[in-house]
Design a binder for these strands. Structure first.
Lengths: 219, 219
DNA sequence: ATGATTTCGAACTAGATGTTCGAAAGAGTA
DNA sequence: TACTCTTTCGAACATCTAGTTCGAAATCAT
């Protein structure tokens, strides 16, 4: 039959599954189109609420044909998810990069990097962390964050040769929640706290526990 | 001019603002209609994704006229927000009730109550905590949670006469994130852990810190 | 240059949203 | 019970948006 759906190859190699080809290896037109769409969506998110945006708004802003959009994304929510992935992996790169330079350095550094990263990309973070769209973007961002944390915790736990008393998946989820909950607060209410200070406070709270921090001896 | 918008009074007394009259004091028809709508939405959420639902689906399931729906809610997202408020205040009631019965009792109890409450209302929690809708429901649920926590922490801090070293708004947000992050993990992945055990683990982690829990001495 | 791939544009279907209004049903009160 | 006030109904309606289709034109990689 006459299928004519314009399925874009986007592929670097032959066997490319769902991950949607976030490489620079793709056709220049593809790169241009996708960044145009992402940028347009971001601009619009700053101006109005995400839920008040239509695909048409994005088309107009990105100066892109309707058919072209649907050749790359299924919906505006998809674009947001894409942005979330980009954000999470970029952040992971920076952390890994830092750890490579400073092996066995201060282990509170990752948290600081997280907050600095959020500050540098404030707009995107705000949209995603507030759960815009159907919540998929936030959900996946949270998942990636906690998975990365779990890997890190596991490595350290094994390195220290200590059996964790609290299951690591739980520790990781709790930590991710802590960080993201604090982040959204810090980004929304514009308190004067600089990134490294919030990070230090949260690290302290997280490592040493609330017992010493809030004046209560129990929960 | 001929405005005919059917603005429902819903009011108990004269001066009723935004809070939308969650009382039992309203007209029986209003009560019936709203719970029908809320129940219908919940049923449908269990069957398909929230984002795949239309207002028409809700109308059909609730057996309600279109105009009636819009006399009460502006959108399906509004209904979800309503549910979130209901949930948060019901939970707060239970905690307050417990604290009244057990003054100065084990202060880890609130966390346990939170998890038991989530277990009892698993379906609603899952929908809301996953950020369905435009994220407003989750956002407001998170806000209420952290505000309640802040109040509690402040009371305890003052009672103990200790100046908190970490700002309480931060502590409260971090705690709320911790709890909600753990909650969504616990509800989604059906690990065999009973409510009181997760609660105990999280309480421990939260009060004593990760230092003693994961085998790492730092962050 | 050439063959392959992407983009364009314009049209079109299908379906959901949100509003309108008079008439009917139901609630609350005496 | 009878009376008034409020809510619900139903059916219609205009409007908008999503998502798809296709041939032609543009752009890419080599």
């Amino acid at each position: 039959m006459g299928d004519h759906v314009v399925v874009i190859s986007t592929g670097v190699s032959s066997n490319e599954a769902a991950p949607a080809a976030r490489g620079a290896g793709a056709d220049r037109r593809i790169r241009r189109t996708r960044t145009a769409i992402r940028n347009a969506l971001l601009e619009l998110c700053v101006e109005r609420e995400f839920s008040a945006l239509t695909v048409e708004d994005v088309l107009e802003r990105a100066d892109i044909a309707r058919a072209t959009f649907y050749a790359h994304y299924r919906s505006k929510e998809d674009v947001l998810v894409d942005l979330a992935h980009e954000l999470a992996s970029d952040r992971a790169d920076r952390i890994a990069q830092h750890e490579a330079k400073h092996p066995e350095g201060f282990t509170g550094d990752p948290v600081r990097i997280v907050f600095e990263h959020a500050q540098a990309h404030r707009d995107v973070y705000l949209v995603i962390l507030q759960g815009a769209g159907d919540g998929r973007a936030l959900r996946e961002f949270f998942d990636q964050t906690s998975r990365q944390a779990e890997t890190l915790f596991r490595a350290r736990s094994e390195h220290a040769g200590v059996e964790p008393r609290v299951p690591l998946p739980l520790v990781a989820r709790a930590w991710a929640g802590e960080v993201i909950g604090t982040l959204v607060w810090w980004l929304s209410e514009d308190t004067g706290l600089p990134a490294d200070e919030v990070a230090a406070l949260l690290s302290d709270l997280s490592v040493r526990g609330r017992r010493w921090a809030s004046g209560s001896s129990e929960d």
